[in-house]
Design a protein around this nucleic acid. Sequence first.
DNA 1: TGTACATCAGTGAACGCGCGTTCACTGATGTAC
DNA 2: TGTACATCAGTGAACGCGCGTTCACTGATGTAC
Lengths: 215, 215
Amino acid sequence: MAKSDAQTPRERYRTQVRAEIKEHAWEQIATAGASALSLNAIAKRMGMSGPALYRYYAGRDELITELIRDAYRSLADRLHSAFAEGADLAVLAHTLRAWALEDPQRYLLIYGTPVPGYHAPDDITRISSETMATLLDACAKLPPDSPATPFDAHLADHRDWADGHPAPPAVLHRALRFWTRLHGVLSLELAGHFTGMGFDPALLFAAELDDLLAH
Amino acid sequence: MAKSDAQTPRERYRTQVRAEIKEHAWEQIATAGASALSLNAIAKRMGMSGPALYRYYAGRDELITELIRDAYRSLADRLHSAFAEGADLAVLAHTLRAWALEDPQRYLLIYGTPVPGYHAPDDITRISSETMATLLDACAKLPPDSPATPFDAHLADHRDWADGHPAPPAVLHRALRFWTRLHGVLSLELAGHFTGMGFDPALLFAAELDDLLAH
DNA sequence: TGTACATCAGTGAACGCGCGTTCACTGATGTAC
DNA sequence: TGTACATCAGTGAACGCGCGTTCACTGATGTAC
């Protein structure tokens, strides 16, 4: 976290204000959704005038892109450091869930409804594949037990996304299964589709996880 | 589809224009997302002035709510009629996927990122539970084979959402599993998270479906 | 069948709003000699 | 250590825009006698 390149006071101030802007941006997103994010509103809450923010961000798009990048980065780091500390898939799954519940709109900014025209810059895609790599590493540690499926064969021929990871197709498949199933429960929970249904979403999540680890 | 209550020409015209407004609204949502939906823009595309739309909808909120209702209605009807024609869970799953791919933004309007403050009216919740009921009916037709899980026990005590459906907990669990797993694959596919990964999302969907039917 | 009236679709002007963004500027902070 | 200059944060005014929404109105369509 500490990037001590001997910042001048001005640089320190700059990074601090940039961070403060982002904090307010997250608050605003949590309250009204990403589409309602407004530079002027952020400025007002910070007690400064609208144009002042242009000293720190080229415009609204740049700010949003950086928020998205930070979200991916945060998740990738969280999972990676958990894995580095010995977390297995079960722990990673709960780490993911905890991260998502910490700030639902942050999760949804990344994995929720995309703006039809938007294309993330390359570096963001790269961060996202770091997360995938951690997931693959964790999946590779499990004993190979599931029988090969037709989809495994398909994956054997379409594994570019694994980015050089040596895992066999069955492991790639397992990683995809983890991702889609946990996302399935999580995203419906975060979107509020379980509210009023009575059961505890945490238990459904745990049940899916058990099922994943059993096969 | 035909609701022939002997409409007067004026009523016919009215319903026709309302439908035309909604068509343009869907186009706009498909193009720029739901948050960009604007009455004025719709009016312009229809060649009329902005205020004219207020003859047909009380405001933007009413229009959006009706779009959401229509989306739920469309899905509920599609699944229900498929089931009525003898579809099993596998066919229902593909019906769901086809419906989603038909208009991704329509699916995401319902199951994607919610606007933090929004609460759907009761009748919409009811339509949504129609879909759930169909899913439960289909799940109940499968032979009971999966062993009871701890979550099943939890569901036995929290089954209000099943709305009087006589299915045992294991079936409720199966229905939830179907929903969350298919949604997991579908929503990531629609949000474009598989693009560039190389594999065919349809095959991953099929693999998840196979797995669901096997247990 | 024709006339008198009511209904209703649609218009254009207007209101207030908040948005993103630019620009010329003031004033404080840091730098060089 | 003090002075002269450059850098940069922040302001306020302004631009143009599109939004949702209201209002008083015109003109066409339907209804009643």
